[in-house]
């Protein structure tokens, strides 16, 4: 009861969007995530960093229950979005994912036209009343994805025909088209060249105006550039979580320091 009270206070003051408590994830017999507690604020970019296999992507996929699609994966603990337990039996993962969008490591446009790629989400969730409305949504999403100028003349061309960076921005546009409140990004730049990466990073910064963005990244420079908060994962544990400046300048935990200085990872 008392804990709850404190939590509410924190929400009130810091605008907590996602709150995770004692989250454990098991893959079959493997204990992939151990005791993770984290609070992610609204309208902030939060970066998850850590060496490969540390569990950062796994934890990210817990937030919109993408792990449900893997048979052997089991999640224990409590993750709340706006105070609602997303692992509650009454929650439909489909509704949850409309609220928590996701962008993947490799650009994965559907083998459809650019327009249909973006319109897919609004269509299945019934967000548009008519064709004009849908056109509007698509244009807005493509603008927000900073790709509108490049594709506005060829909306009927297949999405798979774009370059890697364009494809990833298309996927971001596709994700924001459903009007999510949280945007999860799983190493969105790992398959992109430096120029495309810069474009996407710029885009992430703009998206912060409207969304709570959680980004998993391999690159510490990227985390430093785009995020306000950083969480460092190591071997399934959340080692340290705090303001990005602080993590990169005066880390508290020796493991964080080792990683940042390049001694482990």
């Amino acid at each position: 009861m008392k804990d709850n009270h404190i939590a509410e206070n924190e929400v009130a003051t810091k605008n907590i969007k996602i709150a995770a408590r004692d989250v454990q994830v098991y893959y079959g017999d493997t204990h992939a995530i151990k005791d993770v507690n984290v609070e992610i604020e609204d309208k902030t970019v939060t970066a998850f960093i850590g060496p490969s296999g540390c569990g950062k992507s796994t934890f990210l996929r817990c937030i919109n229950r993408m792990n449900d699609t893997i048979d052997i994966c089991r999640v224990v603990g409590d993750i709340r979005i706006d105070g609602e337990d997303i692992y509650d039996r009454k929650v439909d993962p489909v509704q949850l994912r409309a609220k928590v969008g996701m962008v993947f490591q490799k650009p994965n446009p559907f083998p459809k036209s650019i327009y249909d790629n973006v319109a897919y989400g609004p269509r299945i969730h019934g967000l548009a009343r008519n064709k004009a409305d849908l056109d509007d949504i698509v244009e807005r999403a493509l603008r927000r994805g900073a790709i509108w100028n490049e594709v506005k003349d060829r909306l009927d061309a297949p999405g798979t025909g774009l370059s890697g960076g364009q494809q990833q921005r298309l996927c971001i546009a596709r994700a924001v088209a459903t009007e999510p409140e949280v945007l999860l990004m799983d190493e969105p730049c790992s398959a992109l060249d430096p120029i495309a990466t810069a474009q996407v990073e710029e885009l992430i910064d703009e998206l912060r105006q409207n969304y709570s963005v959680v980004i998993v990244t391999h690159s510490m420079q990227q985390a430093a550039r785009v995020s306000q908060k950083t969480a460092f994962f190591h071997l399934g544990n959340l080692v340290e979580f705090g303001d990005t400046d602080k993590i990169f300048t005066t880390p508290e935990d020796p493991r964080t320091e080792s990683y940042i200085t390049g001694r482990i990872g």
Binding site: N64, V94, R97, F104, F110, I124, R174
Partner: peptide, 8 residues
């Protein structure tokens, strides 16, 4: 995954 991630 892309489709599930959009809530399909």
């Amino acid at each position: 995954d892309g489709s599930y991630g959009l809530g399909a």
